[in-house]
Design a binder for these strands. Structure first.
Length: 84
DNA sequence: TAGTTGACCGGAA
DNA sequence: ATTCCGGCCAACT
């Protein structure tokens, strides 16, 4: 039985290039549609290199936060990949 | 174990 | 449009 954190990491890892999912969508795919906040908490503590956490955005259409460089860094990443 | 914090969401003022 | 409040869940102290 995988934990919620494991599922979240797996889901985020499966996000195709040029696509972006909301925290809520990721949480829903992980099994908890109401755990959007938890997703952020997990990414913050356990952000892996294999996990394109920059492709995870907020439901409002904003980019949300990031660990390295902040929101602007995230925006540039998405722009570079073609998601924008 | 309990309390606080936070890469969030949705609704109300 | 912006600001405030309650709610959900995981990690940290």
């Amino acid at each position: 039985m995988k934990t919620f954190a494991d599922k979240v990491r797996d889901v985020v890892r499966k996000i195709p290039k040029g696509k972006s999912m909301t925290y809520k969508q990721v949480a829903a795919k992980a099994g908890n549609p109401k755990a959007a906040r938890a997703v952020g908490a997990i990414m913050r503590t356990n952000y892996d290199e294999s996990i394109p956490c920059h492709r995870v955005v907020r439901s409002d259409g904003s980019f949300g936060d990031y660990n390295r460089g902040g929101t602007q860094r995230k925006r540039e990443m998405l722009k570079r990949e073609g998601a924008l």
